[in-house]
Design a binder for these strands. Structure first.
Lengths: 189, 189
DNA sequence: AGTAGACATGTTCTTAGCAACATGTCCATA
DNA sequence: TATGGACATGTTGCTAAGAACATGTCTACT
């Protein structure tokens, strides 16, 4: 249930509408915390009821921009500083690795090659983003610096996964067992 | 909804009861795919209905051990080889990093130090496990080799996160902005 | 004036996930 | 023989997540 705090965190930067927030999730935060718009609109309604945010302005097309309240700002800070980090991970790619022995060597190396390429391309795009930020292309606000740190995590995490897949390619799983056919030309054990 | 395939994958090794499977999730798979026992028992019932698994034996305390069917084995293999990997990640620790700018420098470095220590200790335990497997302490079955590969991922992933936190410690976020107090001893801009 | 398409917000419905509760069995040991 | 604890399986009920559907508006172009 970190969604509410993520929304508060985004609103701490500046007011935004549900649509704006949904976009930021799609573009940035979604990589580590996916959230669809139904969830976001619903959570915003609750946050308003609890006075963590308030309507700042109403625009065309029923657009409502929300502003964070002092109470809301205090709540994000409380979360960041006193709530234990939830280290739960959910990585289907790694779950699959426990079952690699069910694949043929060919299927597995094909799979690993594609995984390595995927993670490498994601890592590359974070690397590029980090580079742009280091060149000052996005200014130097504290918010931007926090995203620079997040981009570093994206780079390292995906690079590690890519390297792992490459490592696994070099460590094939031996065939299903003792079924090694008897070969009289080989010395016995 | 990878849970069903994970259960099938575990049952592909050998028959097991709901309790056994729940244990394996707690001990091993839970690190990358958490699952509580209510979910597991429910899914097993559905898998049996769909003839992916069947009851192998009934034991004391209503214990039911399930065996995978040919249909079930084909289904895991289909999943492993033809279903696109879902690369969705959900990492609260990284979500938080986008909001580091809301913390004071002291709070942030305290946080990062604890994160680095946490990930390093997790990485160390995977490293140890991998070492034991390399020393042959768990035999050499293909299943064990797959878990060896998974342990490598655990090591690299957590090491990367630990190193990231350490890197972030060395890249502090500059103060909230232009509020630099005027100091007449400094040359003006 | 009509219309296509992006913008914007919502509801509905289903499933996933998970904590809490309920039930009963077997085993060791006091 | 009573009792505590590990074993084992389930149900209930709430919240999260997410796909699909519904609605309406504004802009630009024809």
């Amino acid at each position: 249930m970190s969604l509410r705090h993520a929304l508060l965190g985004l609103l701490a930067e500046h007011p935004a509408s549900g649509w704006d927030l949904s976009r930021r999730f799609d573009d940035v935060l979604g990589a580590v915390w996916p959230a669809g718009h139904p969830q976001i609109y619903g959570e915003l309604r609750r946050l308003e009821q609890e006075a963590f945010i308030e309507v700042e302005s109403e625009g065309p097309r029923r657009r409502k921009a929300y502003r964070i309240t002092d109470r809301g700002l205090a709540e994000v800070r409380r979360w960041l500083t006193t709530v234990e980090v939830d280290h739960t991970m959910r990585l289907e790619a790694l779950l699959r690795s426990a079952f690699f022995w069910l694949m043929t060597p060919d299927q597995l190396s094909d799979h690993l090659r594609r995984e390595a390429a995927y993670y490498e391309s994601v890592a590359a795009s974070y690397r590029q983003l980090a580079g742009a930020k280091d060149r000052g292309e996005f200014g130097h606000s504290p918010q931007m610096e926090a995203l620079r740190i997040a981009a570093e995590a994206g780079t390292r995490l995906n690079a590690a996964l890519s390297e792992w897949a490459t490592w696994a390619l070099a460590h094939p799983i031996s065939p299903p067992e003792p079924a090694a056919p008897f070969d009289p030309s080989e010395p016995g054990d």
